[in-house]
Design a protein around this nucleic acid. Structure first.
Lengths: 304, 304
DNA sequence: CTGGTTCCATTAGCGATACTGATCGGGTGG
DNA sequence: CCACCCGATCAGTATCGCTAATGGAACCAG
């Protein structure tokens, strides 16, 4: 179970082709074939059906493990690189689309003022991509948002020794067209809306999957899917009656054709958390500027 | 970052000796020396100080990653073995000392009656050992107990694709000597007891570390440590005034020299959860007998 | 100070490993 | 039925990773 073999196994399974994977990885087709054979010999089970190339049950299981293992190996590398070597001259931040970046932008600018030689960058990415980016060392800090009960931590992808700190929390609102029968309510219960028509907009609103996980209720069926991250487009969809959307209260500006009704029950808040590994020098300056609320640390970790 | 190298690195760091680790692993000392050198060359950093053998900062970081990575690799192996190959003729269960094994013992016996050819076994282990044992495939099912807010899952060691199900929940009680001033109370708030003298008995009572993590309060200092798992000894210690202990209500039998006062706040319950990977045939029979309450599944997993 | 001991590093040599390039064979589509 | 695509297999070779032997530093006893 050499990581090398795992990596090519993942590539083969993803591309459903030995030869394509070989080209991707810079091997010959023969090498890939032998690597897969070695893996199968080691585990004593066929992992792939050939022609067409499809994972077997065992292969599927291995795939589910391989990605996190490879991620964790990268994370270890990145972690070690951070503690050794000179402090880097850049500061790369990542944020999920709905994260509260208010403090971050200011802090980034402030760090650049204090350390003019460091270049700064900010990328907006999916929630998981932010966390894995930080783990891999491609980002120095990440800002991730999500929905939880007020006292619970966000449920992030587990990658080991990352620290988190709460940056801000706020209410959630249901966005409805102004003409909707519930638009005049002052508060809404989620249970009443399980059967409403929702827009599934993973990048522009709270993803319905996350909602189902937290609310434990089933339902929340998507009648419409929006794959962009543009908030104004999403709100236009809501106004046009494509469905409802759950959003952090802070992002819904007053619009005449929309109503934004606070969520009353269950008690859920929108929260953005700061994620980072052991801090490089510029990143430490940044987090110092951001750390207002109480610090918290991932399981099995201590904050320096 | 071959797992092979990681494994010997962990062994060397643990034993603080190249030669001892070599003997443990069945290598020559030379091989171990070369493996460590290879790892250091790969990462570009010294991982160990020699004479005496001590991890450097980078080595320490690597150690924190290596154990979970190796565990996860073992878990992948075990997972694959479970889906392939004949159903095993044994059923190995593990349970943490305070887990509610009431239903389990009956279920084990029932499975043996239904499938006379399977041999059954039960091991009482530490909480983490139960979870890692299940992950590694050394156990087919595990019963783990812990303390949480009523609607929260137990915070288990993260090893990937394990499923969990609630088996039972119950109240928590504070065990006090009968002569204690608070012994006559009908309920106690944990906040009032942060500064009391506690007995830290990780195997015989709720570990104070878990208590601190869940209650978010600091304090709960240990005035006395008991490393056994014998409940009667712990209760005798409490009666003798060595300190307080937090226990699941169900395990404190009436004793004249003891009081067991329910915990009123914060709202915490004692819960035992069933942990398992994909189920072998006998294990499936067992869990079917145990699954009364609602099923729940770990992040990133689906229950079959 | 000296000889012995312990421990890790280094080197030489050898067997195993893992790659490339070429070839084979089966399945597919024109 | 032929051409082609794709994965398996084989031969050959370079590299890797092990053992065995040796080297050198630190430590200890006398």
């Amino acid at each position: 179970m050499d990581p090398h073999l795992l990596r090519t196994f993942v590539a083969v399974a993803r591309s459903a082709s030995f030869s394509t994977a070989a080209r991707e990885l810079g091997y010959t087709q023969s090498a890939v074939s032998q690597q897969i054979a070695a893996l199968e010999a080691d585990l004593g089970v066929p992992l792939l059906r050939r022609r067409p190339v499809t994972p077997t049950d065992a292969g599927q299981r291995l795939l589910e493990h391989a990605t996190p293992i490879l991620l964790r190996l990268d994370a270890a590398r990145a972690d070690i690189r951070r503690v050794s070597g000179a402090p880097p001259a850049h500061l790369r931040a990542g944020a999920s689309p709905l994260a509260d970046t208010g403090g971050l932008t200011e802090a980034l600018v402030a760090v650049r003022r204090a350390m003019p030689r460091v270049s700064a960058g900010l990328s907006v990415l999916g929630r998981d991509a932010v966390v894995t980016g930080v783990a891999r060392g491609e980002l120095d800090v990440g800002l991730v948002d999500g929905v939880t009960a007020p006292s619970d931590p966000l449920r992030l992808v587990e990658v080991g020794t990352l620290s988190t700190a709460v940056v801000s929390t706020g209410p959630l609102v249901v966005a409805l067209p102004a003409s909707h029968p519930l638009a005049s309510r002052t508060a809404l219960r989620l249970g009443d809306l399980a059967d409403a028509g929702w827009i599934d907009a993973p990048d522009a609103a709270i993803p319905l999957g996350q909602l189902r996980a937290v609310a434990r209720g089933d339902g929340f069926r998507a009648g419409f899917r929006y794959d962009g991250a543009e908030r104004s487009v999403l709100l236009a969809l809501v106004a046009a009656g494509a469905g409802l959307a759950l959003l952090p209260g802070s992002v819904v500006r007053d619009r005449p054709d929309l109503a934004a009704v606070p969520l009353a029950a269950p008690a859920l808040t929108h929260r953005t958390e700061l994620v980072h590994g052991s801090l490089t020098e510029p990143a430490a300056a940044l987090t110092a500027l951001l750390s207002t609320a109480g610090r918290r640390t991932g399981p099995g970790t201590t904050t320096a």
